[in-house]
Amino acid sequence: MNGFLSKEEWKKRLNRRLFINRIFYILFFAATTIGLIFLAMLLYRVLTQGIGYLSWDFIKGFPAPYPEEAGIFAGMIGSVYLIAIVAPVSLVLGVSTAIYLEEYAPKNRISRFIQGNIQNLAGVPSIVFGLLGLTFFVYIMDFGYSLLAGGLTMSLLVLPIIVVAAQEAIRSVPNELKEASYGMGATKWQTILRVVLPASIPGILTGSILALSRAIGETAPLLIVGAAAAIYSLPDSLLGPYTAMPIQIYSWVSRPGEEWPLVAAAGIIVLLIVLLLMNAVAVFIRNKFQKRY
């Protein structure tokens, strides 16, 4: 042997390498589908369990001590009220922050600090926001276990997500548009208000709807700031008690008995339908109005 591979040896090695390549192709594909299979199983399971309890009475009904009479109406309305607080608060704060960071912020340490702070805030577990809300809104501001405390806590939770989405949308507006506006003699704020914002609104809306859909499904912080599990009327004021869809579902899941999981599944179907609709709207806005420059 002179250090070279014989032809047979070479062929053997090549075939082995090609074989490994083939095997791992299949393995990688299988690994990718496991997540999808899991998703399909989850949806199938929820649908088959919950469909029996899903009825008009369930949608119009209030929580009840018996599974046959329980309904999710209070949860749905509570979630709507929550979003009615979260959307304006987090949108105003979030979009303003994004405009400041993208258009006004000087490149200095303070701006970098604010930016890094938002990144870290996005990584704080939602339950810690719940603790903040419990101390600050429930006890210090004395809102109690109220709709307002829940809504403000949720606003802070989704704020970083909205900021990041709005920043991306604003950043994608091309410089030529801004320069044209300045060239016409517009001031900076006029340019932002009449050129940058209109051009970035589809992106901001898409990101915000996705952020709000996260707020709709979020359970842990609401548990901490005291959303009620059993409530027999709709909230009548900002300081009134309230509930939300995921809170209802959690209270049903954790009840003993054969029937309650089925009620929970019916609640999950309603929650998933709401989320699906919101995501569909977001995708629609993105496809319909978003321009690529």
């Binding site: 998703l39 929820v46 499904g217």
Partner: peptide, 15 residues
């Protein structure tokens, strides 16, 4: 998968 509320995952894990 990332958009599904965690309470739904909890339900699925338990049941």
């Amino acid at each position: 998968l990332a958009g599904i509320p965690t309470v739904v995952y909890g339900f699925f894990a338990l049941t």
